[in-house]
Computed example of a mutant assay.
Amino acid sequence: MPSASALIDAHGRTIRYLRISVTDRCDLRCRYCMSETMQFLPRDRLMSVDEMAALAECFIARGVNKIRLSGGEPLMRGDTVALAERLGTHLGRGLDELTMTTNATRLARHAGALAAAGIRRINVSLDSRDPDTFRHITRTGDLDRVLEGIAAARSAGIAIKINMVALKGLNEHEIAPMLAWCAEQGFDLSLIETMPLGAIDEDRTDRFLPLTQVFADLSERFTLERDTFKTGGPARYWKLADSSIRLGLISPLTANFCDGCNRVRMTTEGLLYLCLGQDAHVDLRSALREGGPAAVDAAIDAGMMRKPAAHAFNIAPGAAPAVSRHMSVTGG
């Protein structure tokens, strides 16, 4: 049974999972995520490591047992490792898992330090293993740097899951080979439907690929068995026969997962967003600066009552993005 201080929203869902976007900046410009020319927050509007850690510790005290560091690209920020080290001191003392989502372009130089901080599992965003396609999707990406980062993380003892956004006309022919490669490497794979967040330079409708179709195609080539495994995230999992890996499907549009949502997202400015696809939020940094942990607790409680029942994603032609903020602001 949850304790009296547990975080329970207005729909009866217990919140155990906090995602922290440590920066909105990214060194890639993925076409489905960002415009080619982006305006990022001035650096003086970013919270300090001490503030982010203090807010995270308020959540740990309220029963959150999993924290994911994300961005943007979290390793673009020079003190992200220091944040991981501080949060890592709570592992086994309220915090069960500390993870990260990264594009791995800077992972090679930081993998050892992240492992030492207590990170045992990371998600790597990788939408193509073809260098030309990868550069086209990311506009600036160097696939070799990503693969070097993945290799360094594996050498450091960090388990790896690949996140691949399914994009019609761009990488759909690579999905089955990606699953086969992950099986060879021992990496789990999660496939993700593109989400209408923030204005971009292209029409997302043209690239939307339903995972129902993808799964049907994969089922003709691989033996997939439903798995009850859960990580606290939105994916539904399948086991790949004759392999130790899992295939996850994150399908906010074709198979809504909101009824089991157990997570909230904090931006680098200290805004707590209650839903990826809605604008409801509360300002935790102001609460921390003005009233300390007690004020933060009150703000979190107010947020729990504002957490929506479901997102408002709509991928229909001509539809406006669900929210104006880009994915990098809240970290997916």
Rank of each mutant, 00 (worst) to 15 (best):
M1G: 06
S3N: 07
S5N: 14
A6R: 14
I8H: 02
H11A: 01
H11R: 05
T14A: 12
I20A: 01
T23W: 04
C26S: 12
D27V: 03
D27K: 09
S35I: 00
M38S: 12
Q39K: 06
F40Q: 01
L41R: 00
R45G: 03
L46F: 12
L46V: 14
S48Y: 10
V49Y: 02
V49M: 10
E51Y: 08
A54E: 15
L55R: 01
R62W: 08
D79A: 08
T80H: 03
T80N: 01
E85A: 05
T89V: 08
G94L: 11
G94M: 12
T101C: 09
N103A: 07
A108M: 04
G112I: 03
A115F: 09
I119L: 10
I122T: 08
S125M: 05
L126T: 12
L126F: 02
D127W: 04
R129D: 00
P131V: 06
D142S: 13
V146N: 00
G149K: 04
A153N: 04
S155Y: 00
A156M: 03
I158W: 02
I160L: 07
I162P: 04
V165Q: 10
K168I: 01
K168Y: 05
K168R: 15
L170P: 05
I175F: 04
I175V: 06
A176K: 11
A180D: 13
C182T: 14
I192M: 07
P196S: 11
A199N: 11
R204W: 10
T205N: 05
T205E: 14
L211R: 10
L211A: 14
F215Q: 14
R221D: 03
F222L: 05
T223Q: 15
T231E: 13
G232D: 13
R236P: 00
K239C: 14
S244V: 05
R246D: 04
L247C: 09
L249Y: 08
L253W: 02
T254V: 03
N256K: 11
V264E: 12
M266K: 11
L271S: 15
G277V: 08
L284W: 09
R285K: 13
P293R: 10
A294N: 14
D297C: 03
D297M: 03
A299F: 07
D301F: 01
M304C: 00
V323A: 02
S324K: 15
R325K: 12
R325C: 04
H326G: 12
M327R: 13
M327E: 13
